[in-house]
Amino acid sequence: MLRRLVKDFQGDVLAIPGRLIALIFFLLLFLLPLITQEPYTLRILIFANIFVIFAVSWDFLSGYTGQVNFGHALFFGVAAYTAAMLNKYIGLQPWATIPIGAIVAVGAGVLMCLPALRLRGPYLSLVTLAFPLILLGVVKAFPDVTGGEHGITGLTRLSESRITDYYISAVVMTISVFIMWKLTDARSALVRTGIILHAIREDEIAARASGINTIRYKLLAFAVGGFFAGIAGGLFAHFMRIAGPSTLDLMLSFQAIIWTVFGGIVSIYGAVVGVYFLYPLMEFLRVIPELRILIFAAIVIVILLFMPEGIAVWIRDKIERACPRCKLSNVWWRRTCRACGASLY
């Protein structure tokens, strides 16, 4: 049994550079506090973790179904406000408010899905864009409950110390990313969703013709995407101790797209790379505040110009080579496939 696991590990993780890198990354993530406990560094990484969940959920919803969502901040904001209200007015603790907030975000996702199901392409994008902005109007209209532009303040902390905050965010992030990765894994024998979502994205009509209830899967995508974006929103509210209108901002929705497409859409890990590259970069650029956003935008443009599929996908294509016969991934220096021995050229 153990030997079997070790063997699987050797074959499925160590032999594929992409997965090896992912493994090292997550190990480093959990060991980092041994190296530095500087609160500022940890804060940046906590934000990165939260936004990874947010960006990956966008990739899950939009990348995999081809439904480009311009209003992903809706889920983030709905969950942040729900968590904040439950905490502030009823006194629930973060362990309860964050999941409830995420469930409410699922509700928002399903509601948003109702008109969205009838729409395709740019029409869908534009309708999704409208929702957070409409909600922003509602937030402003009831300042007694929502605090207007000040937001709901003075929430309970995520935990008492920064290190614990960090581990909470890292664990939640790892689990969320893993679940979403599994759900989209087209080769998985356990869950079928991956391959079906791929099918819908490639050709919805063909998928429907093959007897797939595409509506059900689109609903699922909205619900799962909404749930994880909601988790991110709840974490954000409790970490910042405030839920304000900035959580529904148009720019936040755009950020999710920027992070994901930069890293590589339809890949899950692309979003992780995108956030972990761009968020700390943005922080680092604080030393030249005047040029910060300019440099940020310029980097995004330049990288995408040369790697239109995204930076992570570009790197993966360089270091991995799929076997033309058995589709197994191989390290780039191998000339023949590690399983079937077919030539990789």
């Binding site: 480009v68 755009f254 797209i257 920027i258 497409v261 930069f262 859409i265 935008a297 310029a298 995004v300 443009i301 995408l304 110009l305 239109p308 599929e309 995204g310």
Partner: peptide, 11 residues
């Protein structure tokens, strides 16, 4: 690359 174009226009 449609989504990439979209992103480049934002940038």
């Amino acid at each position: 690359h449609q989504v990439t174009v979209l992103l480049i226009t934002i940038a």
